[in-house]
Design a protein around this nucleic acid. Sequence first.
RNA 1: GCCGAGGUGGUGGAAUGGCAGACACGCGAGACUCAAAAUCUCGAGUCGCUUUGGCGGCGUGUGGGUUCAAGUCCCACCCUCGGCACCA
Length: 815
Amino acid sequence: MAEYNHLEIEKKWQKIWTENKVFESKESSSKEKYYCLEMLPYPSGNLHMGHVRNYSIGDVCARFHRMKGENVLYPIGWDAFGLPAENAAIKNNVHPVKWTKQNISRMKEQLKSLGISYDWSREIATCDPEYYKWTQWLFIKMWEKGLVFRKSANVNWCPSCQTVLANEQVSNGVCWRCESHTEHRELEQWFIKITAYADELLEGHKQLTGWPEQVLSMQKNWIGKSCGAEICFTISGTDKKLKIFTTRPDTIFGVTFTVVAPEHEIISKMKPKILNYDKVAEYILASSRKSNIERSASKEKTGIRLEGINAINPATGKEIPIFTADYVLTGYGTGAIMAVPAHDQRDWEFAKKYNIPIVEVIKSNNSNITEHAYENEGELINSGQFNGIKSTEAFDTVIQWVQKQGFGKRTINFKLKDWLISRQRYWGTPIPFIHCDKCGIVAVPEKNLPVSLPEDVKFTGQGESPLKTSKTFVNVKCPKCGMDAKRETDTMDTFVDSSWYYARYCDAHNIDFAFDSSKLNYWMPVNQYIGGIEHACMHLIYARFWYKFMRDLGIAKHDEPFTNLLTQGMVTLGGSAMSKSKGNIVSPDEIIPKYGADTLRLFILFAAPVEKQLDWSSDGIEGCWRFINRIWRLFDVVSTKSVEVACQKNKDELLKLMHKTIKKVTCDVEKLQLNTAISSVMELVKGLYAYKYHSNDEGVSLEVYKTVILLMVPFTPHLCEEIWEKLGYKECVSTYTWPVFDENMIKESFIELPVQINGKLKGKVLVPADIQETEVKNIVTANNKIMVHLKGKQITKFIYIKNKIVTIVIKDLHI
RNA sequence: GCCGAGGUGGUGGAAUGGCAGACACGCGAGACUCAAAAUCUCGAGUCGCUUUGGCGGCGUGUGGGUUCAAGUCCCACCCUCGGCACCA
């Protein structure tokens, strides 16, 4: 056979797959459905190795399940809205539509050259009006259900550009365009009340048995449910109250100060009484320039006392100081805390720094509160009528007392915040609402959807939202009263678009509705979802929330959208994630011309377990190239029997190895442990080379060879198709049946048992499988190599782990 | 700072508490060749000893612990990465 020409072969089969619509899926099938999905890509303009890894994993999964006889849905699309397109428009004066479409067609070409088995007929882009029409429709439904609201929120503001900046457009407190210092500013924003589903998002984890534990744990902490109490502290000499949230009401007698966030309203309300207001204002300005991460990440907690005002501890009646400090965040709880330095390490450090008294209220046995806080449980002391109660019980007792006294109540608090979805930008789904002076905020009627993005927009990076510059867009008639009105000019966060795209694939080109529910309910939930670990919290919570909303709307029937989740590890270069914005991209185009897509796919899956971080290096790609060529050359060996060499492996051994390999690869691929699946096929190929031609072969080598090809289809589909054709098959191997193994062929009749003496390996014995312990003992103690070590010693223990290992513990006889 | 991962030969990695280093890369040796490439075969954690058959010590980020047995379980620590709500 001619040399392996990947350029020709890969093109040939990509064409055949497309022309014969091999991977297009239909709902009507007697087979069981299987929905395999990768997180949809952002069209940055170039595929990088992170993409290649993601889609190689997904393709193995899709192809494997197809060969297992399932009706597989495996679609792809584009998360096409977003900031980079608009940045490109500002920098290079290219329209976001043009920029995005170019990127999509470029990346689509790259994807096709990888030979991923997508159903391209279902391709979508979230920036297409046919798609975002339904994003808008769903958003209006949320509004109608009371899940959308407006309130003012903090944004990054560049005073020189007079514009809102994304976090990414601010580095070190400086604007990306003009390098002036940015500020925080309050603006009216659109929110989705995701907190209404907080409990269900947490409870839903019980159904997610196919998700990695680490993701559930991250989400749990993100949702951050905590039970506690809201307690009111009166400001001394006034009737004003300071409401705090605490998870430790049992420590209330130990509260020696309170801390409010710099944004807390109490500061402006009490301004006339605050003696050092100038200094406080300075502190507030400084913290407004920091991001939330900067605020909480600094080791040294900073703060400033609001001099002139005090709060009263409602339990002790004592006056205590009020501080403002930026480690207290305005978005969590009530934006104010009661500080118990004796029993909270952060409060303890703060108290030490500012010389605040530390009052111990929970007795600790071995802990000294002059050294650090005691955060564990114990018996209450210095706590009036509660002395002697265990702190765990006191939690409830104190809340009941507080509630009776009328200065507080039991509450549940979530870290999860409502979802701020509005952006003052052009390249996003327009928020389909109209502002009417008379009627207020009015939803755009369904018949007028989509609200399309206008073309007459200037991209300067300065001033208000770009949509405001379009005359045709802004001015409308109110759908209710017909008077002149203004369109909403904010667009949506792109996480909204990607919260329901998996549902659109089920019926991708429906023009009458977002999707036909019967089709959705046929395909959903997604059997296997695959994407980067960096999406563990935000996207994966938003999408779960959105699906539950669609269920409650009656258009979907399951509770959770993704049954099994695989979070692949990042592909890094020099230690940090590959991304266009960081400029550390390695493109598949650097590899494919030389080695082909099959080699690249095989290599990236073989290089590391899929869920682990992989620092890119092309060292080792030669090995995969060689392996593919070894398989290619085997064709001559098994089909012509032209090579005759000494046989190092007998027929039975080879067949046993084949069945073992089928079992191993099947199990591994099911669990997506792809690197070890590949290495076991490598061993089978090695076995086949060691066997080669045998005079009594009876077609054994051909049978094993076909198995190798079938096992490799998900990894190197082009190669396998070509060989399969040469073997005389008319049908694509992509739709052939996955091989099965025979358990009887795998059974071992003899087992080599390692023998350890005092924990050290001293020898091995060959014994029949499933042999009894007494027999093992006879064999082992009669073994020459072992006997040497037992001479003059006493056996204190003899441990036999069936079919696994023998351990002998000995000591000297005379001691 | 908080939450979640990870750390094993020169390199990527393998190993339901049971033989550490499978499978590869790179390296070395041999075969083939006029020669090279390709290919095929073999070798190797490391240090020491060796009568050249082997034998022994040390080895999974660091320090402790549990166990007949620890890369794996427990405790403390160090380093790297991901996320932290307007990058996607």
